[in-house]
């Protein structure tokens, strides 16, 4: 009898371990996808084309123009804010500072904070804001451009890719999401920027992305 119990115990233990080890560590790829047919070395192969962040052209807090080419081969976290925001922005930036402090010396990780109030948030205002937040260097860019472009980018590329529910127009922009984008400009996660726990998950997930094989390595 006691042998039976021991055996059951051992099986339970083993299955518990097994269960843990099969919890996959890879992140989902969000957005629409389509199949494309290509010919490689005379053979027809079907590839999946994922939704990516489209090209954009904006200006950062140093007055440098930024396009998405500057993000080639970078993992980055995007959020939407405005410097005069009294409600959720401070707590978002406090959490984003944790991301910044974790990865500020990591060359392939960046943060992009898009202002949704470019009229007030001039380059000068953004620079002053970054200074006061204690952000230096080029790891964290505060960027501004045409309001329409930023909103379109937010809703059509960053956030719709995460959730198709658009019943709250513009709502996402104000809900303080942090969006994680991989080296191939695909959205890989979204996190509530006001929630410190979710932001530590984001910090962990950046590590997971860093460990992914480089694009094209397995083709």
């Amino acid at each position: 009898m006691s042998r039976l119990i021991l055996a059951i115990g051992v099986i339970l233990l083993w299955s518990a371990c097994k269960f843990n080890s099969t919890t996959s560590n890879s992140l989902p790829i969000y957005g629409n996808r389509q199949a494309v047919t290509r010919v490689v070395n005379g053979q027809t192969v079907i590839d999946t084309l994922y939704q990516t962040i489209p090209p954009f052209k904006l200006v950062n807090q140093y007055g440098d123009s930024i396009s998405n080419n500057d993000l080639n081969g970078k993992i980055y976290v995007a959020d939407f804010f405005f410097t005069s925001c009294p409600s959720i922005c401070p707590v978002m930036q406090r959490n984003m500072l944790n991301v910044y402090n974790t990865y500020k010396n990591t060359p392939d990780v960046k943060i992009l904070s898009y202002t949704i109030d470019p009229k007030y948030d001039s380059v000068k205002v953004l620079k002053k804001y970054a200074d006061k937040l204690g952000v230096t260097g080029n790891m964290w860019w505060f960027i501004q451009g045409k309001k329409d472009d930023t909103y379109r980018l937010a809703e059509k590329s960053y956030l719709v890719a995460v959730s198709q529910d658009t019943t709250v127009p513009g709502g996402y922009v104000h809900q303080g999401y942090f969006v994680l984008v991989d080296k191939q400009k695909r959205v890989r996660g979204s996190y509530d920027g006001t929630n410190a726990q979710q932001v530590s998950q984001l910090i962990d997930d950046v590590k997971t992305l860093k460990a992914e094989p480089a694009p094209g390595a397995n083709q």
Binding site: P86, S87, I88, P90, V91, Q93, R94, L97, Y129, D131, K132, L133, G134, T194
Partner: peptide, 13 residues
Amino acid sequence: NCHGAKGEGLNAL
């Protein structure tokens, strides 16, 4: 949200 759970504020902001 602004002043923090420990009253720590946010850097120079």
